[in-house]
Design a protein around this nucleic acid. Sequence first.
DNA 1: ACAAGAACTGAATAATGATTCACTTGTTTG
DNA 2: CAAACAAGTGAATCATTATTCAGTTCTTGT
Lengths: 210, 210
Amino acid sequence: MAYRETEKMRKRKAEARQRIVSCAYQCVAENGFRSARVTTIAAMAGVATGTIYRHFESKEDLFAEIFRLATQREVDKVAEALASHGDATVRLEAALRQFAERALRGPVMAWSLIAEPVDPKVEEERLAYRQAYAELFEQAISEGMEEGCIPEQDARQSSTCLVGAIAESLVGPLSPAQINSRAEPRNDNYEPLVNSILRFCIQGLTGTRR
Amino acid sequence: MAYRETEKMRKRKAEARQRIVSCAYQCVAENGFRSARVTTIAAMAGVATGTIYRHFESKEDLFAEIFRLATQREVDKVAEALASHGDATVRLEAALRQFAERALRGPVMAWSLIAEPVDPKVEEERLAYRQAYAELFEQAISEGMEEGCIPEQDARQSSTCLVGAIAESLVGPLSPAQINSRAEPRNDNYEPLVNSILRFCIQGLTGTRR
DNA sequence: ACAAGAACTGAATAATGATTCACTTGTTTG
DNA sequence: CAAACAAGTGAATCATTATTCAGTTCTTGT
C-alpha cells in the first residue's frame, strides 16, 4: 500500500473547505445569494471550480450551509440577549432590539436571510431559522407567564407574531432599493424605528403601554 | 388599403389575452409561480407559445399581471370588510379575519402571494401589495385614533406590524409541505388559529385584552 | 378574388450557469 | 524512487426554459 489519509491532509482539506465557506459567506454578505456564482467563489478562494464540488454536493448545499452559519450567529446573539437579567418582558425587549439593530447594521445579509428569494433547500433552512427564533421567544414568553409579567396566551403563536412583525417592519428598510440609495457614510439613527416596532410588540404581548 | 383594425378583431384579441391570463392564473393557483411554464400556459390557452409574446413583453410581465390581479381581489375583500359598520377596532378585526381566512381557504395562491420566491418584477408587485394592505390598515388605525378607540401611535408602523404578524403566522400553515400533507377533504377549523393571531394584533394595537 | 397587412405558429435558438470528468499534480509509504 | 492513490483542475458539457422569427394563416376592404 502507499497512500493513506493523514492528519496533514485532513487539515489542509479542512482549510480549503473553510476558505470556500468564508468566500461564499463574503459574496452573500455583499450581494446576496442570487448573484453569488460558483465560479466567482472558487476564484476568490483560490481553487478551481471543480474543487467546490469535492466539498459540497451542489451549490444549493453550499448555500444552505452559508445560510445556517449566518443564522446561527444571529440566533446566538438573540439567545444571549434573552439570557440577560431582568424580568421576561425586559429580556424579550432586549432580544427584539438586538434582532432589529443587527439587521439594520448588516442589511444585505439580513435581507438575504429574511426576504431574498432563494432556492428550495435554502428556503428550508429559512423555515428552520424562523422556527429557531420562534422557539427562543416562546420559551421567554412562557417564563414571563410564570413570572406573572405576561398574561396567559398561546406562547408559540405570540412568538410567531413577534417574528413576523419585526421581519415585516424591516423588509422595507432592508430592501436593496433602500440600501443602495442611502448615502455613505451610513450613520442612520435606527432608534425611532426600532422603538416604534418594539412598542407594538411589547404591547401585543403584555397589553400594556409604556 | 385593405386590412384595418376592426371591432371584431379587437374583441378576439382581448379574448385571447383573457384566456392566457386565466390559464396562467389557474396554473399559479394550482402550483405556484415557480413551476408555471410559458409553454404549458400556452397549451392550456390553446395558442402557440409565441402568441403569449404578442400580449406580454415577457413571462415576468405576465406573472406580474397575474400577481396584481390576485392581489386586487384580496385587497378588495379586505377593504370591503374595513368599510363595514362598527368602531375602528371592530372593523380592523373583521378585516384581519377576512385576510387570514381567505388565505387559509386558498392556500396555494396565498403562499405564492406572501412567501413564494419570485422574480424581481413580481417581487416589486409584492412590495406594492404589502403596501396596499399597510395603507388600508393605516387609514383605519388613524380613524380609530380619532374615534378614541385606539391610542396614539405611529399608524403606518403599526399597520406594517399587523401585516407581518399575520403573514408570518400563515407561512407555516400555508407552506407547501403542510398543504400537501393534509388530508382531503379539507374541513379544517381555522377558528382557533385565527382568533389567536387576532388577539395579539388587537392587543398590539389597543393595549387591551378581551 | 386579391392585395395588404395583422396575427399566429412552433421548431429552432439563445442565454445562463451549474456540474462533470479526463487529466494533472501532490502525497504517502515501502 | 516508484507505486498507489487522493485531490485538484478548468474547459467542455449539459440542462433548462424563455424567447425569437421566418413562414403560414386569417381578416379586411375593394
